[in-house]
């Protein structure tokens, strides 16, 4: 049952040009930097990337933006990566900005089989443009649709060989949500432990959701 553990080259063969990819992390904390190295090596391009933000020019999702591998990013924040702003203004990159809590729920809905979510966030702002407003008990909510991806690239602290995952501190963020919302889930992990050594109550993502585990890569730039 150790079949899930593989190399990043092997795992990333599944990622092809034009795919929609979810990438975990918040300003590159909890982002699988080794898998991003792998995407850069593989030459894959024209990606639609869903993530919290575009990180920095030298960290996180930002590295894919700098290398011009994205056709669109769906994120809540781009302010820490001037290259995203530059490509957005020049028309090279489509940037769809989504409130962070809405993005989290859209990904959750995508993984949970829900037809969408109703949120008060964005009512009365440009975020509401073109969206259906649903009134419940006299209060207005925006209908926000679920998000899914072809592949999710996530980062966990520990995995067992069945793919059960444990995240650490603020590196959890979008990772467990994305693990439920993609057809193929690749997890980069700091440490792989024997099956049975993780307390079932402590497991944050059940292994049945994880298709491949790629060791290490925590040290970006090494």
């Amino acid at each position: 049952m150790g079949k899930k553990v593989t190399t990043r080259q092997e795992a990333l063969k599944a990622v092809r040009d034009g795919m929609t990819i979810m990438i975990g992390g918040f300003l590159a904390v909890g982002t699988p930097e080794g898998l991003i190295d792998g995407l850069l090596e593989s030459g894959v391009r024209d990606l639609v990337v869903i993530g919290n933000d575009t990180g920095f020019v030298d960290k996180g999702i930002g590295r894919l933006v700098v290398a011009k591998r994205c056709r669109e990013v769906i994120v809540s924040h781009v302010g820490t990566n001037p290259e995203t702003g530059r490509q957005m203004n020049s028309g090279e990159l489509k940037v769809t900005l989504v409130p962070q809590g809405t993005l989290a729920e859209q990904v959750r809905a995508g993984g949970a089989g829900l037809g969408g979510i109703l949120t008060p966030t964005g009512i009365g702002t440009v975020v509401a443009e073109g969206k259906q407003v649903v009134q419940v008990a006299g209060k207005d909510y925006l209908l926000e649709l679920p998000l899914r991806a072809d592949v999710a690239l996530i980062k966990a602290h520990k995995a067992d060989e069945k793919g059960n995952l444990v995240y650490r501190r603020s590196a959890r963020n979008f990772n467990p949500l994305m693990a439920m919302a993609a057809d193929l889930v690749i997890a980069e992990v700091d440490e792989i432990v024997p099956v049975g050594s993780l307390d079932p109550d402590a497991i944050m993502t059940p292994g049945l959701l994880v298709d491949m585990i790629v060791p290490g890569g925590a040290c970006h730039g090494c």
Binding site: D53, H77, G79, G85, L97, P99, Q100, T102, T121, G122
Partner: peptide
């Protein structure tokens, strides 16, 4: 300046 709303709207 278009940094994005992050969590501010929520």
């Amino acid at each position: 300046l278009v940094p994005g709303m992050g969590g501010a709207m929520d």
